[in-house]
Design a protein around this nucleic acid. Structure first.
Length: 489
RNA sequence: GGUCGCGUGGCCGAGUGGCUAGGCAGCGGUCUGCAAAACCGUCUACGGCGGUUCGAAUCCGCCCGUGACCUCCA
């Protein structure tokens, strides 16, 4: 059986065996957020997906350099390559400095990533911190003849480039088709070709964020930052480049073009794209106005939500679908995920209390192999989770005395949980709302439940049920066991 | 209009040319004073019409529906 890791490569439109360029090192670049507004849940999905990919690569023993940029300049609205970028516009709106906008939403982004238990990237470079690298790259592209300057703005010459390379290879599009689908030029445009995009944009007198360049004061185009920073930290050709599927046709296509035009090498060996989060079948996006913010989800403070869901439930919910599939968002689906997540975590707690047996009625080795098989097949987390629920069944059955686990089984199961549930899927126990209770409250609940136990022994069920009902109303869940009770808030 | 996808049981969501993922919900049972939890069993689907095949939900064709991208968006 082939046990090597397979990755679906957008460039080839098929799964390929993953062979790093310089093993054991792996370079991975993921397009990070544009920090001019709060990240919504759809954005989060991409970063959670790549967090699991990063974690699995680490688990396999690769020395991974994970680069995820922060776009803090140069991102224009619309297709007009003029005027202020998103940060300056937002700054005017909120009456702040552009860099205050950047700071505010960068911190917010990191906060959300922390809440979702994602690992920090190895390097998190910013566009504004790499202006000179971008300028150098643009100069190189111009001298290679694939870009031209007009009134202080530099455009990438797509038609020229297409004579030597395949421009639309990532999305399998032909130049003629692309040209057909593009709208007419506005008239006062300075571009030669309608597909040409800006590498450097000349500043207007009122532009706030601008830098000096060989072409005068200006700011970089959006696509060049990722090419420049990927090259700087991971080399001219690196292993994996990831991002959302919406970036495929434009951003990543242009990244490839820039790198080819600059260095005459393909920048990336494996392109990976995560699919969109949808709401009622339509893509969640900023512009559509159907975005959920993470904190709205946690608190339930949103018109479409009946109540809140914890960050780990959301993470589990996302891991239950494959990263290349769309995932639809609904109360019902979240509730199902919540139940499943709790079952998984509770079984993990039960596992720690199990005693071993001299015999074994289960096959943990096979289970473990199945888990690896699932992850090796293009990070198939839903299949992994299906296998983990087999572990749940085994644990709970053993707890009921219906399966027998020997010492090795217990060790292997604990190891399985640590590896896949916690290290790879990146799940952790939710902070129960009541976990910060003082010991006194817990003692009091124990006291009350001990009184209830006495009532039960005396067959005074009216009293025992009353106590249970009242405590349930207060949010304390009671489970009777053979000779006692368990409770949680 | 062009490119690329998708259509799976009540819901979410994998996968596969024959061996009926998984979670949630439902139903029946075991356990329990009753619950809860847990376990066992049950329900067993692949848009429509053709074709290839011993055999297709899985491959091919057509049709219908739906989505993404082609314009900023993870």
């Amino acid at each position: 059986m082939d046990t090597s890791l397979h990755i679906y490569n957008t460039l080839k439109r098929k799964k390929e065996v993953f062979e790093p360029i310089n093993p054991p090192f792996v370079g991975i670049y993921v397009c990070g957020p544009t920090v001019y507004s709060d990240v919504h849940l759809g954005n989060s999905r991409t970063f959670i997906s790549f967090d699991i990919i990063y974690r699995y690569l680490l688990h396999l023993g690769y020395k991974v350099r994970y680069v995820r940029n922060i776009t803090d300049a140069g991102h224009l609205e619309g297709d007009r390559d003029e005027g202020d970028d998103k940060f300056a516009k937002k700054a005017k709106l909120e009456q702040l400095e552009p860099m205050e906008i950047v700071q505010k939403y960068t911190l917010g982004f990191h906060d959300v990533m922390g809440i979702f238990n994602t690992l920090s990237p190895s390097i998190e470079p910013t566009a504004t911190g790499h202006i000179s690298e971008q300028i150098e790259m643009i100069k190189e592209i111009i001298s290679n003849g694939y870009a031209y300057e007009n009134n202080g703005t530099v455009y990438f010459d797509v038609e020229k480039y297409s004579k030597d390379y395949q421009y639309g290879q990532l999305t399998n599009r032909k130049l003629e088709d692309l040209l057909e689908g593009t709208r007419e030029l506005g008239g006062q445009d300075e571009k030669k070709g309608r597909l040409d995009f800006a590498l450097w944009i000349s500043a207007k007198p009122e532009t706030i964020m601008k830098w000096p360049s060989p072409w005068g004061w200006g700011f970089p185009g959006w696509h060049i930052e990722c090419s420049a920073m990927g090259k700087k930290y991971l080399g001219e050709t690196f292993d994996i480049h990831g991002g959302g599927m919406d970036l495929q046709a434009t951003h990543h296509t242009n990244e490839i073009a820039q790198s080819q035009a600059c260095s005459n090498t393909a920048p990336v060996k494996y392109w990976m794209h995560t699919n969109m989060l949808t709401v009622n079948g339509a893509r969640m996006s900023k512009s559509a106005g159907n975005g959920f913010l993470p904190h709205e989800l946690f608190t339930g403070n949103h018109p479409l939500l009946e109540r809140g869901y914890s960050p780990m439930v959301v993470r589990f919910f996302m891991a239950q679908s494959h990263y290349r599939s769309t995932l639809d968002f609904s109360n019902e689906a979240l509730q199902a995920a919540e139940k499943g997540f709790q079952k998984l975590i509770k079984a993990g707690e039960t596992l720690n209390k199990l005693g071993d047996s001299s015999e074994s009625t289960v096959n943990i080795k096979e289970l473990k192999n199945n888990c690896y098989k699932a992850m090796n097949d293009d990070f198939n987390t839903p299949i992994l989770i299906a296998h983990l629920f087999e572990a749940v069944r085994i644990i709970n059955s053993a707890n009921d005395g219906k399966e027998k686990l020997n010492e090795q089984d217990l060790k292997d199961l604990k190891d399985l949980y640590k590896t896949f549930v916690f290290d790879v899927l990146g799940l952790k126990e939710d902070q129960a709302q009541g976990s910060e209770e003082t010991g006194l409250t817990g003692d009091l609940i124990d006291l009350i439940l001990n009184l209830r136990l006495d009532a039960k022994k005396n067959k005074d069920f009216a009293t025992s049920d009353k106590i249970r009902d009242e405590l349930t109303k207060k949010g304390v869940t009671i489970k009777d066991t053979k000779d006692g009770f368990e409770w949680e808030i």
